[in-house]
Amino acid sequence: MSANAQAKGPNPAFYALLVALIVMSAGPIVLMLATSLKLNVEIMSDTSSLIFMPTMQNYETALCDMLWYEPEHVRYCDPTFGRALVNSLIVATVSTILTLVIGCMAAYSLVRFRFMGRDVVSLTTLMTRMVPPAVLLVPVFGIWTFQYGIDGTRMGIILIYVAMNLPFVIWILQSFIVQVPIQLEEAARMDGAGPFQTFFLVVLPLIKPGLAAAAIFTFRVAWNEFLLGNALADRNSRTVPVTIVNSLTEYDIDWGVIMATGMLLAVPPIIFTFVASRQIITGMTAGAVKG
């Protein structure tokens, strides 16, 4: 195939491949959505297909403690999901904001200043990027419980999520701050702006795409994380992933309701993906391409 052939019109085979990939990628998610809209009778019946009467019953069961009415089909209302949703929202939002504020300041310092200890900090953030949650499980449980006394609180969960996300955020924002022309900052300094004013009023607005990418990645981790949330949360501070896993049993899974809760957990990331796919791809590629 020569370069000319490439430039010529689209080839049906490539479109077939493209469509096949889209179907394979989205298929399981569509299936989850479809299942969440089905009654258990339909899920169990042999004639499974995409043709069915959608019902909101599973969502009503999942959200029963947040509804203003009592759905007839709900026999027992488990009052955990609504609270977990609120917890998840608070934990993810607060930890994202904190991580971004702390992270962008650190990234700026590492990019724009030469000072003693800079290399140590830089290397530490690089090395701590790969620490898996499973590794932190034992020490975080011990320290949060016995030393900081913040186990079972949202604050405790937020603290560990901020720490987990910081290295990545610092590192990704560095690659955006490097691209800000230094002349702009010098001009601001000439006009009498202090370093903090320069940073917040001149630099930050220019790295908005980077901040967006970092925010999405941070929110995603905090919103989706299960292991540490499970170890640290008590009944009142449980997040959605923790409630979902705890409601899973070996047999007799209520697939309709489970899929509805899964859908609810998946909605924010899905929205982010459709709204900001470009920023997400930027964030991802900055990782490998810029080393």
Binding site: S25, A26, P28, I29, M32, R220, W223, N224, F226, P241, I244, V245, G262, L265, A266, P269, I270, F272, T273, S277, I280, I281
Partner: peptide, 10 residues
């Protein structure tokens, strides 16, 4: 991107 964004639990 969707499969990477959705919670691993899900």
């Amino acid at each position: 991107i969707l499969p990477m964004m959705i919670a691993p639990i899900v």
